[in-house]
């Protein structure tokens, strides 16, 4: 687990060893929020004095939801995500960690590792129902801070961005640097991402905002801006 200081805040990041997805944790007094949870024993000591955890999902893909059950078993928690994300994770068929398993099998075959078996032992297939959902946007107060949620289409129907105090944006897999945005998943849509999401994000996000992506390192929005436009690659 590493951490980033942004003004007076410390945001902890844990990279999921199986598929390099980012989980972010912010702790303040006896409360914390966790973005895109996965199992990490170091989180236990970090959340030792915490009484309330809110779990925020940037989208419904398993590499960003695999730790919900683990956190729910350990901490009183509330789950927030888009309505479409909540609907997706409530279905039995979507408990299957298909993409992670497929990628791990490929890695094991190429590298002689045994990560898939290890992952299978750790992963608990569960369905979930979010406590708070929204269609297009939502504003939640968290202590003295503001959390602003807004849907972001293209990577998946249930994707959203989460802006913290108008200076940090948790963007999941919808905005990354040096990694392509994947719009080819079932229910992804490249046209919508290009024609609707990018112009929306160019208006919504500020150039000096710190972007906390779903994979890869945090970056300033200005790092991926060219001539006032967000510049991303696709896969």
């Amino acid at each position: 687990m590493d951490f980033f200081h942004i003004d007076d805040l410390t945001i902890y990041r844990s990279v999921y060893k199986y598929i390099n997805s980012n989980m972010y944790i912010l702790v303040e007094e006896d409360r914390a929020f966790v973005v895109d949870p996965h199992e990490d024993v170091y989180a236990i000591s970090l959340l030792e004095k915490v009484k309330n955890v809110i779990i925020l999902l940037t989208h419904e893909h398993t590499d960003h939801t695999s730790g919900i059950y683990w956190f729910q078993q350990k901490f009183p928690s509330k789950l927030i995500c888009t309505k479409k994300c909540s609907d997706y994770i409530s279905l039995e068929e979507n408990r299957r960690p298909i993409l992670i398993s497929f990628i791990l099998e490929e890695q094991d075959r190429l590298n002689g590792t045994n990560l898939l078996e290890e992952f299978k032992k750790q992963y608990v297939p569960q369905t979930y129902k979010a406590d708070i959902t929204f269609e297009d946007s939502l504003i939640e107060q968290w202590g003295s801070h503001k959390l602003e949620f807004f849907k972001v289409l293209g990577h998946s129907p249930g994707s959203c961005g989460i802006i913290f105090d108008n200076k940090i944006a948790f963007m999941g897999d919808s905005l990354m640097k040096d990694l392509p945005i994947i719009t080819r998943f079932p229910r992804g849509n490249k046209k919508v991402y290009i024609n609707e999401t990018l112009p929306f994000l160019e208006q919504k996000l500020k150039e000096d905002m710190m972007i906390m992506p779903g994979h890869g390192n945090p970056f300033l929005l200005s790092d991926i801006m060219k001539g006032g436009k967000i510049n991303v690659e696709f896969r």
């Binding site: 039995e92 398993s101 079932p186």
Partner: peptide, 26 residues
């Protein structure tokens, strides 16, 4: 590729109205 595989599986499951086991998908 791995991303295209997800689309293939989703389309097969829809076409035949089945839910495949993860090991079979792999």
């Amino acid at each position: 590729d791995s991303v295209g595989h997800m689309g293939l599986i989703a389309n097969l499951e829809e076409a035949f109205n089945i839910m495949m086991e993860t090991d079979d998908i792999i």
